[in-house]
């Protein structure tokens, strides 16, 4: 076990290093000289003079060799300083912290919706394997997976906010404003979980002790719900952790459609405003969160599921 954890830690640290290099280099791929871009932003589109650019480069350390710049950048990040936004007075760290909770809240609510849909559907699908209900729920899951979130969001808005007038169209702060975004985010994820749960259920249903339980005459339903579901959910729940990336992908669109603050919205706004320090900071933070979650899930998965051996863990 510890050998495995150590192995994964080393690889995670290596990946984090690579991620930081790529993120750092991101700004160098932007068209034009970064110094000129920044100065132009600050001067509202005016072309800065050559002296101004040179002075700015000197002040910002942009004349140093790139590895030196990278080390400086990493050192300040390790102190929690992700830099300064071009446009506003806020630090990137502050902006990210401010926008963390709304996205987290959306993700939690979306996950709740996903489980509410996916658990019954997955169970029904597995129990009725090959039957009409199975086909139906598989198709429903795929439909959920295939519907673009931005269309689904508008559709829900049209039905529940306009035609039925039971929920607010958009905004942030109250519980009822969270319902439609959560459903939009949840349906796509429900599809993924349904499929996972179905195959996991089928696997467990096939196992020895379930067959024994059945033969002992326990009522089918109890067998299914009590034993199978509990066992089938273990891998599913751990794998849900891996859907972190999906959650963020979805949050971008949903925060735009429903006018919510959050990390996704911040990212889009910064990309459009060419506020590269924010883009850089966000990409880095998201990637780090992603790597750390994957690492934890990996370890947890092996911890809860003794069937998986620790030797020769796949790369």
């Amino acid at each position: 076990m510890w050998k495995f954890v150590l192995q994964r830690s080393v690889s995670a640290v290596f990946v984090l290093f690579g991620v930081s290099v790529l993120t750092f280099l991101l700004v160098f791929f932007t068209p034009g000289d970064p110094a000129e871009t920044i100065l132009r932003q600050q001067m509202g589109g005016q072309t800065p003079s050559a002296e101004a650019i040179e002075q700015f480069r000197a002040n910002q350390g942009l004349n140093d060799p790139i590895p030196v710049q990278y080390v400086d950048w990493v050192l300040s990040i390790l102190q929690g300083d992700l830099g300064q936004s071009y446009h506003s007075d806020s630090s990137v760290t502050q902006l990210i912290v401010d926008n963390l909770w709304p996205t987290f809240e959306l993700a939690l609510a979306g996950m709740a919706v996903a489980l509410l849909i996916a658990v019954p559907t997955g169970v029904i699908s597995a129990v009725h394997k090959g039957g009409r209900l199975d086909y139906g729920s598989q198709l429903a899951a795929l439909l959920g997976l295939s519907m673009p979130n931005f269309w689904l969001g508008y559709l829900l808005m049209l039905i529940f906010a306009i035609n039925l007038s039971v929920l607010p169209t958009s905004g942030y702060g109250t519980i009822d404003q969270l319902v439609l975004p959560a459903i939009t985010l949840g349906t796509g994820m429900a599809a993924i979980i349904t499929r996972l749960l179905r195959s996991s259920m089928l696997e467990v249903l096939d196992e020895e002790y379930i067959r024994t339980a059945r033969s002992k005459g326990l009522r089918e339903r109890i067998v299914v719900y009590k034993h199978t579901l509990r066992n089938a959910l273990i891998p599913v729940i751990t794998i849900i952790g891996l859907q972190f990336g999906y959650l963020l992908n979805g949050a971008v669109i949903i925060e735009i459609v429903f006018q919510r603050p959050g990390l996704g919205r911040l990212l889009i706004d910064s990309i459009f405003a060419r506020d590269y320090p924010i883009v850089q900071g966000l990409v880095l933070v998201i990637a780090v969160l992603f790597v750390v979650t994957n690492f934890l899930v990996d370890v947890a998965y092996r911890y809860v599921d003794p069937r998986i051996s620790f030797e020769g863990a796949p790369k």
């Binding site: 808005m157 906010a161 306009i162 007038s165 607010p168 169209t169 958009s170 905004g171 429903f258 006018q259």
Partner: peptide, 18 residues
């Protein structure tokens, strides 16, 4: 004063009496 940046949503909110 409520901030609703999307013009469409702004009108929807009005029709919804928010």
């Amino acid at each position: 004063f409520r901030v609703i940046e999307d013009p469409n949503t702004r009108t929807l909110s009005l029709e919804n009496r928010e």
